[in-house]
């Protein structure tokens, strides 16, 4: 039994298919990369997995349980955490309060929640800005807050949607280190990223999507050599 898999996911918005047949399996403990050109349906896939909206058809199976169509908050409690590509900080709350709110998904008293939050903030390296209002953070801080908050819900499976976009080279290295640390903790990670260097170094396996459909899968090397992937990214002439 696969730890996590999606089967023939399809999502229509009005008459247009944003996702039209995406299937993959993820093993426990791996870092699984998803790549594909802009608008190919990566975020939409994450949205279906995390319950933002139900798929038009297809299945999402997590630890043997079908979870497609379930509400977001339920899926979170099952142990699937996510970040948003377009960051969604709880703006008028401090970083600590953002993470505390997330921690309440596992504990009930404010003391425990604070404790979990502080630990997670330390782990993710946000301690210096713990008391800053979330809306006052620069983009790198906001991206990291997304990860920290998701981590505070103690996910078993973490979905990262372009958490490295817009970061400078130093921040990028820190992000790579953090994601490795998260995996080292036993969390399985699915990561969407446009930055090839990052996704190639981090991922154990990569899944490529184009026009809403799965087109290739394999180790970073295999996928990088796949003609369909090259075509999708660089245009027909290069294939």
């Amino acid at each position: 039994m696969a730890y996590f898999k999606v089967e023939k996911l399809v999502k229509y918005f009005g008459g247009l298919a944003a996702v039209n047949g995406v299937s993959f399996e993820v093993q426990k403990g791996e870092i699984f990369g998803i790549i594909g050109p802009n608008g190919c349906g990566k975020t939409t896939t994450f949205n279906m997995i995390s319950g933002v909206f139900p798929p038009t058809s297809g299945k999402v199976i997590y630890q043997g349980k079908e979870i497609q169509g379930m509400k977001s908050h339920k899926i979170c409690h099952l142990g699937v955490g996510r970040t948003f590509q377009v960051v969604k900080p709880l703006g008028r709350m401090s970083v600590l309060d953002n993470v505390t709110a997330a921690a309440f998904s596992r504990v009930n008293t404010i003391r425990e929640a604070r404790e979990v939050a502080e630990k997670t903030i330390d782990f993710c390296g946000l301690a210096p800005v713990a008391d800053v209002l979330a809306k006052a953070l620069p983009i790198a801080g906001r991206k990291r807050l997304e990860i920290t908050r998701a981590m505070a819900t103690r996910p078993d499976l973490l979905l990262l949607d372009e958490t490295a976009a817009g970061l400078n080279p130093t921040e990028l290295l820190e992000a790579i280190e953090l994601i490795r640390k998260i995996r080292g903790n036993g969390t399985t990670v699915i990561i969407i990223e446009h930055i090839m260097h990052l996704i190639m170094t981090l991922s154990d396996r990569i899944h490529a999507i184009n026009f809403g459909q799965s087109v290739a899968e394999g180790t970073p090397k295999e996928v990088a050599a796949n003609p369909q992937v090259i075509e999708a990214y660089l245009g027909k002439d290069y294939a």
Binding site: S50, S72, L90, M93, D97, A101, T153
Partner: peptide, 17 residues
């Protein structure tokens, strides 16, 4: 905490359980 999270961003709040 939950109330204020909902006020600030419903999608984020849902994703946090």
């Amino acid at each position: 905490y939950y109330f204020v999270s909902i006020r600030e961003d419903q999608d984020a709040a849902e994703s946090l359980g």
